[in-house]
Simulated scan of single mutants.
Amino acid sequence: MPTHPMIWSCWKWLCPASLQQPSARPLASLRITSHSAIVQKEAQMSLLDTARAVRENAHAPYSKFKVGAAIKAASGAVYAGCNVENVAYPEGTCAEAGAIAAMVAGGDTRITEVAVIADSPKPVSPCGGCRQKIAEFAAGDVVVTMATTDGIVQQTTVAALLPGSFDADYMSRV
Protein backbone atom coordinates (compact mmCIF):
# COMPACT_ATOMS: atom_id res chain seq x y z
CA MET A 1 0.00 0.00 0.00
CA PRO A 2 1.44 3.43 -0.87
CA THR A 3 2.77 5.56 1.95
CA HIS A 4 3.50 8.86 0.21
CA PRO A 5 0.45 11.18 0.69
CA MET A 6 0.18 12.16 -3.00
CA ILE A 7 0.51 8.57 -4.18
CA TRP A 8 -2.02 7.40 -1.55
CA SER A 9 -4.44 10.06 -2.77
CA CYS A 10 -4.16 8.78 -6.35
CA TRP A 11 -4.33 5.18 -5.16
CA LYS A 12 -7.61 5.90 -3.39
CA TRP A 13 -8.91 7.78 -6.46
CA LEU A 14 -7.96 5.02 -8.86
CA CYS A 15 -9.01 1.95 -6.89
CA PRO A 16 -12.57 1.15 -5.79
CA ALA A 17 -12.96 0.65 -2.05
CA SER A 18 -13.17 -3.12 -2.53
CA LEU A 19 -9.65 -3.12 -4.01
CA GLN A 20 -8.24 -1.00 -1.19
CA GLN A 21 -8.73 -3.75 1.39
CA PRO A 22 -5.46 -5.49 2.33
CA SER A 23 -7.13 -8.89 1.91
CA ALA A 24 -8.26 -8.21 -1.67
CA ARG A 25 -5.92 -9.96 -4.13
CA PRO A 26 -6.39 -7.53 -7.07
CA LEU A 27 -4.79 -4.77 -4.99
CA ALA A 28 -1.45 -6.46 -5.59
CA SER A 29 -2.08 -6.04 -9.31
CA LEU A 30 -2.01 -2.25 -9.14
CA ARG A 31 1.09 -0.24 -8.48
CA ILE A 32 0.94 3.53 -8.58
CA THR A 33 4.31 4.86 -9.68
CA SER A 34 3.62 8.59 -9.62
CA HIS A 35 1.01 11.19 -8.77
CA SER A 36 -0.26 11.09 -12.37
CA ALA A 37 -2.10 7.84 -11.60
CA ILE A 38 -0.01 5.53 -13.75
CA VAL A 39 -1.05 1.92 -13.40
CA GLN A 40 1.48 -0.76 -14.21
CA LYS A 41 0.03 -3.88 -15.82
CA GLU A 42 0.83 -7.01 -13.82
CA ALA A 43 0.25 -10.57 -14.99
CA GLN A 44 -2.99 -10.89 -12.99
CA MET A 45 -4.72 -7.81 -14.42
CA SER A 46 -5.71 -7.35 -18.06
CA LEU A 47 -6.23 -4.03 -19.78
CA LEU A 48 -9.99 -4.61 -19.68
CA ASP A 49 -9.82 -5.44 -15.96
CA THR A 50 -8.04 -2.12 -15.39
CA ALA A 51 -10.77 -0.26 -17.31
CA ARG A 52 -13.45 -2.14 -15.36
CA ALA A 53 -11.85 -1.23 -12.02
CA VAL A 54 -11.39 2.48 -12.77
CA ARG A 55 -14.94 2.72 -14.16
CA GLU A 56 -16.21 2.43 -10.60
CA ASN A 57 -14.60 5.79 -9.84
CA ALA A 58 -16.41 7.66 -12.62
CA HIS A 59 -18.16 10.87 -11.59
CA ALA A 60 -21.45 10.52 -13.47
CA PRO A 61 -24.15 12.03 -11.23
CA TYR A 62 -26.18 13.39 -14.16
CA SER A 63 -26.20 10.62 -16.77
CA LYS A 64 -25.38 7.75 -14.38
CA PHE A 65 -23.40 6.33 -17.33
CA LYS A 66 -20.01 5.29 -15.94
CA VAL A 67 -17.23 4.58 -18.42
CA GLY A 68 -13.75 3.22 -17.79
CA ALA A 69 -10.83 3.21 -20.19
CA ALA A 70 -7.31 1.84 -20.08
CA ILE A 71 -4.54 2.31 -22.60
CA LYS A 72 -1.27 0.51 -22.92
CA ALA A 73 1.67 2.66 -23.98
CA ALA A 74 4.65 1.56 -26.04
CA SER A 75 6.68 1.54 -22.81
CA GLY A 76 4.39 -1.16 -21.41
CA ALA A 77 2.84 1.18 -18.85
CA VAL A 78 -0.94 1.10 -18.54
CA TYR A 79 -2.89 4.31 -17.93
CA ALA A 80 -6.49 4.43 -16.79
CA GLY A 81 -9.22 7.03 -16.95
CA CYS A 82 -12.91 7.36 -16.15
CA ASN A 83 -15.53 9.84 -17.28
CA VAL A 84 -15.94 12.94 -15.12
CA GLU A 85 -19.19 14.81 -15.69
CA ASN A 86 -19.82 18.44 -14.92
CA VAL A 87 -23.14 20.20 -14.43
CA ALA A 88 -22.11 22.30 -17.45
CA TYR A 89 -22.29 19.26 -19.76
CA PRO A 90 -19.70 20.27 -22.37
CA GLU A 91 -17.11 20.64 -19.62
CA GLY A 92 -17.10 16.93 -18.74
CA THR A 93 -14.23 14.62 -19.63
CA CYS A 94 -14.45 11.23 -21.33
CA ALA A 95 -12.71 8.19 -19.87
CA GLU A 96 -10.46 7.83 -22.92
CA ALA A 97 -9.37 11.47 -22.71
CA GLY A 98 -8.51 11.00 -19.03
CA ALA A 99 -6.38 7.94 -19.78
CA ILE A 100 -4.60 9.77 -22.60
CA ALA A 101 -3.92 12.77 -20.36
CA ALA A 102 -2.45 10.47 -17.71
CA MET A 103 -0.28 8.81 -20.39
CA VAL A 104 1.11 12.11 -21.63
CA ALA A 105 1.66 13.32 -18.05
CA GLY A 106 3.51 10.06 -17.42
CA GLY A 107 5.90 10.76 -20.30
CA ASP A 108 4.53 8.34 -22.89
CA THR A 109 3.23 9.37 -26.30
CA ARG A 110 2.42 6.12 -28.19
CA ILE A 111 -0.62 3.92 -27.58
CA THR A 112 -0.35 0.20 -28.40
CA GLU A 113 -3.74 -1.01 -27.10
CA VAL A 114 -7.04 0.45 -25.86
CA ALA A 115 -9.89 -0.95 -23.73
CA VAL A 116 -13.20 0.79 -22.96
CA ILE A 117 -16.08 -0.54 -20.84
CA ALA A 118 -19.52 0.65 -19.73
CA ASP A 119 -22.81 -0.76 -18.48
CA SER A 120 -24.53 -0.68 -21.85
CA PRO A 121 -26.54 -3.15 -23.96
CA LYS A 122 -23.76 -3.39 -26.55
CA PRO A 123 -20.00 -2.76 -26.35
CA VAL A 124 -19.38 0.96 -25.87
CA SER A 125 -17.30 2.69 -28.50
CA PRO A 126 -15.28 5.87 -28.02
CA CYS A 127 -17.10 9.06 -29.05
CA GLY A 128 -15.94 10.89 -32.17
CA GLY A 129 -13.71 13.30 -30.26
CA CYS A 130 -12.02 10.47 -28.37
CA ARG A 131 -11.52 8.52 -31.58
CA GLN A 132 -9.54 11.49 -32.90
CA LYS A 133 -7.62 11.79 -29.60
CA ILE A 134 -6.73 8.09 -29.73
CA ALA A 135 -5.66 8.42 -33.40
CA GLU A 136 -3.26 11.22 -32.38
CA PHE A 137 -1.22 8.71 -30.37
CA ALA A 138 -1.99 5.33 -31.99
CA ALA A 139 -1.30 3.67 -35.32
CA GLY A 140 -4.28 2.56 -37.39
CA ASP A 141 -3.72 -1.12 -36.57
CA VAL A 142 -3.89 -0.61 -32.78
CA VAL A 143 -6.55 -2.89 -31.28
CA VAL A 144 -9.47 -1.24 -29.47
CA THR A 145 -11.41 -3.55 -27.17
CA MET A 146 -14.93 -2.34 -26.39
CA ALA A 147 -16.96 -4.12 -23.71
CA THR A 148 -20.07 -4.18 -21.58
CA THR A 149 -20.14 -4.93 -17.87
CA ASP A 150 -22.16 -8.05 -18.80
CA GLY A 151 -19.15 -9.49 -20.61
CA ILE A 152 -19.94 -8.75 -24.25
CA VAL A 153 -16.66 -7.85 -25.97
CA GLN A 154 -15.97 -6.50 -29.43
CA GLN A 155 -12.59 -5.71 -30.93
CA THR A 156 -11.75 -3.37 -33.76
CA THR A 157 -8.86 -1.12 -34.78
CA VAL A 158 -8.26 2.60 -34.58
CA ALA A 159 -8.45 2.83 -38.39
CA ALA A 160 -11.82 1.06 -38.47
CA LEU A 161 -13.17 3.39 -35.77
CA LEU A 162 -11.95 6.52 -37.54
CA PRO A 163 -11.51 6.06 -41.28
CA GLY A 164 -9.98 9.07 -42.97
CA SER A 165 -8.75 10.50 -39.69
CA PHE A 166 -7.32 14.00 -39.65
CA ASP A 167 -3.59 13.55 -39.08
CA ALA A 168 -0.33 15.48 -39.23
CA ASP A 169 -0.02 14.92 -42.99
CA TYR A 170 -2.72 17.55 -43.50
CA MET A 171 -0.45 20.08 -41.79
CA SER A 172 2.60 19.38 -43.99
CA ARG A 173 2.40 22.76 -45.77
CA VAL A 174 2.26 24.75 -42.58
Rank of each mutant, 00 (worst) to 15 (best):
Ala88Gln: 14
Asn57Ala: 14
Ala95Asn: 02
Pro121Leu: 08
Pro121Met: 05
Asn83Gly: 02
Ser46His: 02
Ala74Ser: 14
Gly76Gln: 13
Ala101Gln: 13
Cys94Asn: 11
Ala95Val: 02
Gln44Gly: 14
Asn86Glu: 08
Val124Pro: 00
Thr93Asp: 12
Glu113Ile: 07
Cys94Lys: 07
Ala80Trp: 04
Ile117Asn: 00
Thr50Val: 15
Glu42Asn: 15
Phe65Val: 10
Ile100Met: 05
Ala118Gly: 03
Gln40Arg: 15
Ser63Asn: 03
Asp49Val: 10
Asn86Cys: 09
Ala77Ser: 14
Gly76Thr: 14
Thr93Cys: 11
Ile111Leu: 08
Gly68Leu: 05
Asp108Val: 06
Pro90Met: 10
Ala43Lys: 15
Val104Gly: 07
Ser120Asn: 09
Thr50Gln: 15
Arg110Cys: 12
Cys82Ser: 09
Cys94Asp: 14
Cys82Asn: 06
Pro123Val: 04
Tyr79Cys: 01
Gly98Glu: 11
Lys72Arg: 15
Arg110Phe: 11
Val39Gln: 06
Gly106Trp: 08
Pro126Tyr: 07
Ala95Ile: 02
Pro61Ser: 01
Ile38Tyr: 06
Ala97Val: 11
Ala51Asp: 04
Val87Tyr: 12
Ile117Leu: 05
Ala53Trp: 09
Tyr79Lys: 02
Asp108Phe: 09
Asp49Gly: 13
Ala99His: 04
Gly128Arg: 12
Pro61Tyr: 03
Asp119Met: 06
Phe65Gln: 14
Lys41His: 14
His59Gln: 12
Ala88Asp: 13
Arg55Tyr: 09
Pro123Trp: 04
Val116Asn: 00
Thr109His: 14
Ala73Cys: 14
Glu56Cys: 10
Val114Trp: 03
Val67Phe: 00
Ile100Asp: 02
Thr93Gln: 15
Thr50Phe: 11
Val78Glu: 01
Ala102Thr: 08
Tyr62Thr: 05
Val67Ile: 10
Ala70His: 00
Cys127Lys: 04
Ala58Thr: 04
Val114Ile: 13
Val104Cys: 11
Arg52His: 10
Ser46Glu: 04
Val67Ala: 03
Lys64Glu: 07
Glu91Ser: 11
Arg110Trp: 08
Glu56Tyr: 11
Tyr89Phe: 13
Cys127Arg: 02
Val39Ser: 09
Ser63Glu: 05
Ala99Ser: 08
Ala105Pro: 06
Glu96Leu: 11
Pro121Ser: 09
Ala88His: 13
Ala101Val: 12
Ser125Phe: 09
Val116Phe: 02
Asp49Arg: 09
Tyr89Leu: 12
Met103Pro: 03
Glu91Arg: 13
Ala51Ser: 09
Gly81His: 06
Val87Thr: 08
Asp108His: 07
Gly107Ile: 13
Gln40Tyr: 12
Glu96Met: 10
Ser63Asp: 05
